[in-house]
Nucleic acid binder design. Structure first.
Length: 671
DNA sequence: ATTAGGG
DNA sequence: CCCTAAT
């Protein structure tokens, strides 16, 4: 619903489904308009139709939803604001403070509560786990939020309690810097790749074969909460770089749950995705480091700052817009009347493909019968208590095997990058400990979870899913989650959602509940929904933690979701490289000579050899220079402000060429 | 591919 | 710096 409103906010009539409400150039506009209006009518009709059908669904279901949801939380008591804009990232156990954010990818599969009773394995210990799970869940059966915590606990605890294994990068797990990978861990000149995995569940025979993509099962029987789910964390890649290189410091930690088909829970619907899924064009290794995929060495840094978040969300929105455009491939020709459409749309499609990879790999692919069957059973059993289920079931589209049971899947989540300094004489053991500490210190923080619909973050926590537009009508890739890990800064779990705080009370803080996984919550809550949507978490990495680990090899092989190509790092941008004074001087010189506006010439004249600076950069820089120069010095902010003399030249050149351009234009106008 | 301009 | 529109 949210996105609908947004889309309606634009000029729907004139340009339905247009990505953006931008102004057309005055010229040619009228010419295009007729054609466009005709198309617009068609599209509008289509949109209206779909909207009205959706509305019907809502009208019949919303009341029940509200009723169903009311037991969950006091709507009035819950604050809407749930996002933490100022994550604290500096609490790593390491002295190194240049944490950029490491990435943890996870495949989290949600398990409806009832599923815990389903066991397909004879494995005794697995069964024990199931028992434990069942027990723990029964205790809290009616609190969906608690299940959420359980999942989070399960995912988090192994990280905290288990020791990582370290292995050199030759193993399956991932290279981060392909070009630098040839160095062994011991002699790392610049980067080493360290895999961190959790020791397998005791009953797992595959523990030692991490490099063969054997999933390590993490889980704990000790704690009832944690036992609720089994996380699989199989790999974590970590780039370690000497501090000397801090300027480029980028360490990536990848917690990759992985899956080779060797593990999925017999009693949970598990959808696992290969590590290589995301970057299947990366041959045998998956390069998960954010910096690998960027051009010019840009890093995807999750610094947790507002800007980054804003950037990410912006991009997600845009990606969503792109997707929406892409949803009408056969209608693309309708836009053909616009000349620019062809190339631009193609470019958009390319971008879209890049960003959409994530989406695609999140689309639950119920490739396996057993798993999904279990899912359906649970959903329905759960739904039985809920009137919503029945009504929705009747309305749900008949969808083969998956029925209403495709759950939300969190493929991965990002946590702040971690930079680790390790003395050369460090032992493997100490390295493991360091990595472990670093990771756990991050994980121990909290997860900030955002729910995205069509790329838009749904802010209102009190909305029912239907109200939020999350319903069976939603496209599988329309639902997304962002999980951002925030380092623990104080004892209070900042990642807790307001309602969680409300229900648990500030004084009752289960240490294991600090990490909040929204996804299981959604899965369970939505179990009654005929939701087909698979949740997606945007990140450049695709998996890591797979709960409900099991040693059942069959279950895992089931769901190899193979993405088309390596995912573009979402939100990645070029590494910021402030102009040096020398560069500014060059630029000023060039502009003094050539004038502003012909940036290609300026580039060729002064920055020909500087690959880093494009003419667009120069243009931008000039713009900024003019702005800087035009404001009083007291108001100037920033580290490297060019000397006043240079700024004066900027203003002079700007003034000169402005006049010059004006004269020229005037003359041209006369001619 | 360039240029311009908003964010 | 990014993104988009216009050329």
């Amino acid at each position: 619903m949210v996105f609908r409103k947004k889309s309606e906010g634009g000029s729907v009539v004139r340009r339905p489904r247009k990505r953006r409400d931008t102004t057309l150039a005055p010229v040619k506009r009228s010419a295009r308009l007729k054609k466009k209006q005709m198309y617009a009518l068609d599209l509008l009709a289509t949109v209206a139709e779909s909207l009205s059908s959706d509305e019907d669904d809502y009208s019949t279901e919303s009341d029940q939803d509200v009723a169903a949801a009311s037991h969950n939380s006091d709507r009035a008591a819950v604050k809407a604001e749930q996002f933490h804009e100022a994550p604290q990232l500096n609490s790593t156990a390491l002295e190194n403070d240049c944490c950029r954010g490491y990435t943890v990818g996870c495949d989290c599969i949600c398990a409806p509560l009832g599923e815990t009773s389903i066991r397909k394995t004879e494995d005794l210990s697995t069964q024990n786990v199931a028992d434990t799970v069942e027990g723990s869940l029964i205790e809290k059966a009616d609190a969906d939020n608690l299940l959420t915590q359980n999942v989070a606990d399960a995912a988090a605890e192994p990280l905290i309690e288990k020791k990582p294994d370290v292995f050199a990068e030759g193993s399956l797990v991932s290279c981060t810097k392909p070009s630098l990978l040839d160095c062994g861990l011991g002699t790392i000149p610049e980067y080493g790749t360290i895999g961190v995995c959790h020791p397998c569940f005791p009953t797992s025979a595959d523990v030692k074969q991490v490099h063969q993509a054997t999933p390590a099962i993490i889980g704990s029987l000790v704690d009832g909460n944690a036992a609720a789910l089994h996380g699989l964390v199989d790999t974590m890649d970590l780039d370690i770089k000497p501090s000397v290189l801090n300027s480029e410091s980028s360490s990536g930690v990848h917690l990759g749950g992985h899956d080779n088909g060797h593990n999925s829970s017999p009693f949970y619907p598990v959808q696992v995705q290969h590590a290589a899924d995301i970057d299947n064009d990366e041959k045998s290794t998956r390069c998960v480091h954010p910096s690998t995929s960027g051009s010019k060495g840009g890093h995807l840094s999750y610094k947790g700052d507002c800007r980054t978040r804003r950037l990410l969300s912006t991009r997600m929105r845009k990606a969503a817009r792109n997707k929406m455009c892409g949803e009408l491939p056969n209608k693309g020709s309708k836009f053909g009347g616009k000349k620019i459409s062809a190339t631009r749309r193609r470019a958009q499609m390319q971008r879209m493909l890049k960003t959409k990879k994530v989406v695609e790999c999140y689309s639950a692919q119920p490739s396996d019968e057993g798993v999904l069957t279990e899912t359906s059973g649970t959903s329905c059993s759960r739904g039985g208590q809920d009137p919503t289920c029945a009504s929705e079931s009747s309305q749900r589209k008949p969808c083969a095997s998956e029925g209403c049971n495709v759950k939300f899947i969190i493929k991965s989540f990002n946590i702040p990058e971690l930079s680790i300094e390790v003395p050369e004489n460090a032992t493997v053991g100490s390295l493991k400990r360091i990595v472990m500490d670093a990771v756990t210190s991050k994980i121990e923080g909290s997860l900030s979870v955002s729910v995205l619909l069509q790329g838009e973050i749904i802010q209102d926590d009190n909305k029912t899913l239907h109200q939020a537009g999350i319903c069976h009508g939603a496209k599988p890739d329309s639902i997304g989650f962002t999980l951002e890990c925030e380092a623990k800064q104080d004892s209070r779990p900042s990642g807790l959602a307001p309602e969680e705080m409300d229900s648990a009370g500030p004084s009752v803080v289960n240490p294991l509940s600090k990490i909040k996984f929204e996804q299981p919550f959604i899965s369970c809550t939505l179990g009654d929904y005929p939701c087909e949507g698979a949740a997606q978490v945007r990140s450049e990495i695709c998996q890591a933690i797979v709960p409900y680990g099991t040693s059942n090899p069959d279950a895992l092989a089931i769901v190899p979701v193979v993405p088309r190509s390596r995912q573009r790092d979402f939100g990645q941008r070029r590494k910021r490289r402030p102009f040096s004074v020398a560069e500014v001087e060059l630029l000023v010189e060039a502009v003094e000579l050539l004038g502003f506006g012909r940036w290609k010439n300026v580039k060729n004249h002064a920055f020909r050899d500087n690959e880093e600076r494009t003419y667009v950069d120069l243009k931008d820089k000039w713009k900024n220079l003019v702005h800087t120069a035009s404001i009083p010095p007291q108001l100037r902010r920033g580290r490297a402000i060019p000397p006043q003399g240079l700024l004066d030249r900027v203003l002079a050149a700007q003034a000169y060429w402005t006049v010059h351009h004006a004269k020229r234009d005037e003359e041209e106008g006369r001619d």
